[in-house]
């Protein structure tokens, strides 16, 4: 949960800023996908654009979070022995 929030929340803020900057400069009618004019309505384009920016920023955040894992977490199981799920190879006998 903590990780999910650390990925999604900063990405939301950055995605929102990117959306505003991008669509201030570019009108939705000026967009082309693979040479075809985008035929969605402006609201649809803005919405999809926002989620696209959010996803891109989230991918970056996720990568950061992934690289932030400490040596402790990578080398050993991060869960306390009693917290490990049943069937886990590292679960206590």
């Amino acid at each position: 949960m903590n990780r999910l929030v650390s990925i999604l929340w900063p990405a939301f803020v950055v995605g929102g800023a990117a959306e505003v900057v991008f669509f201030t400069v570019v009108a939705p009618q000026e967009l082309y996908f693979f040479g075809e004019a985008v035929e969605l309505g402006p609201l649809a384009t803005y919405t999809i654009g926002f989620f696209l920016f959010w996803c891109i920023a989230a991918a970056s955040s996720a990568f950061t979070v992934f690289l932030q894992k400490s040596a402790e977490e990578i080398n050993r199981c991060p869960l306390e022995p009693r917290e490990r799920p049943p069937g886990c190879p590292k679960a206590e006998p």
């Binding site: 949960m1 903590n2 400490s70 402790e72 977490e73």
Partner: peptide, 9 residues
């Protein structure tokens, strides 16, 4: 690690 996880939980 444990303390970090407990941040939101």
């Amino acid at each position: 690690v444990l303390e970090e996880r407990s941040l939101y939980e």
